[in-house]
Write a protein that binds this DNA or RNA. Sequence first.
DNA 1: TATTTTATGTCAGCAACACGACAATAAATT
DNA 2: AATTTATTGTCGTGTTGCTGACATAAAATA
Lengths: 219, 219
Amino acid sequence: MFQLTDKEQEYLHKIGSEISYPKGQIIFSSGQKTNEIYYIISGFVKIYRTTEDGRQVSVALRYPGDFIGLAEVLSNSSERVYSAEAMDKVKLLINWQNPFKKMLADMPDFSRKLMELMSHRLREAQNTIYDFIMNPTQGRLALVLLEMAERSGSPGENGLINVSLRVTQEELACIIGASRQTVSSLLNLLKEDGSIVYERREIVAVEVRKLKNWIQNAK
Amino acid sequence: MFQLTDKEQEYLHKIGSEISYPKGQIIFSSGQKTNEIYYIISGFVKIYRTTEDGRQVSVALRYPGDFIGLAEVLSNSSERVYSAEAMDKVKLLINWQNPFKKMLADMPDFSRKLMELMSHRLREAQNTIYDFIMNPTQGRLALVLLEMAERSGSPGENGLINVSLRVTQEELACIIGASRQTVSSLLNLLKEDGSIVYERREIVAVEVRKLKNWIQNAK
DNA sequence: TATTTTATGTCAGCAACACGACAATAAATT
DNA sequence: AATTTATTGTCGTGTTGCTGACATAAAATA
């Protein structure tokens, strides 16, 4: 849905620089000064907040081709509201605020495109709210697995998507707002059912059709 | 947080026209063609979706000074995704898509301001997700009542906000994602506790401090 | 290879909350 | 004023999913 033109890519590369983070690395965290935005080249990133009692609550996942840290820059907030963590080995393009803002001013089409992106993200977030209200835990787990597979896997035969998701149950729990124990049981349910292939702490493939059966109200 | 300049107000009025809707009126609904955006002059509006089995799920409330129907226009979606309903007697300014887009092009500052608005909304939606994960039903109810009071009431003495909220329990239920019966009990709990003044099916005032005690993790 | 750390599986007990049912009340309509 | 309709209060029952506890297994480290 979001595609940069060659010219935009080029511009971004010229004013930014590539940077890699290992899995688990925190890219920025809540409360920090807002100085930069990131463009995801590969890997995926969790946007989350830590509660007083130390629990993490995830509100979004971002995949290659998307920006992170955008909302603060576009709304001129001086401090980060949410934190971002690499869920994977991640390759990013880091861009400082000022040149980026200049780029926005220089390229009205790019600016319009970002407006589209923000609108799209708002819809996504609202869909997440909808899903939380409509779906019990299994449904939310199925939704998240499906999304991760579609975004970072490669389609195989008869509705199978091959992936390589090394996500702990703890991580999944904080994304879907459930307890770790529940995620454990559910993953095994999905496995027995043939909805996912889950071996040695890694999700290897998902069966789109079967997985969708666990979701109440598909979009 | 979102303020229009006199010039912008004037422009909007020039290219748009005022329109009033009674409580319960549907302003636009999911699936309709996107032709216009609305600016809320008074009253408030629910953004929601209806599920297959007829239940309503609300994802946001919009108050005076805010736009509705914006995301589709800004992202060039031809169809409405969510529906909008007047929760009150509502006065709106209706603006057709094309003149509005021209306004965006004509006034870069306005355009930037809308970008800020969308960023802000995204944060709001993410905060809602966070609240859903962190707070049990009472907390979400308290949050919604607090927001409605702060946005549409007038501050009285010692932390009291006077309002006049004629919202059915059914409505509240679909906003916080709970059953009507649970809302019923909770409202009475809040009433006994002195967190709200609730008389003859109308919420007359809220006690900010006490109400906040029901919320797990205040923003 | 041995040891420690981290992640997973599983269970029992408990609390929150949904659902259906129905009575009671207020509001709207005739 | 009488009747209908919409809204609210309050049950009991059942389910879901949380918590804490502990065993097991895999991975990381020494």
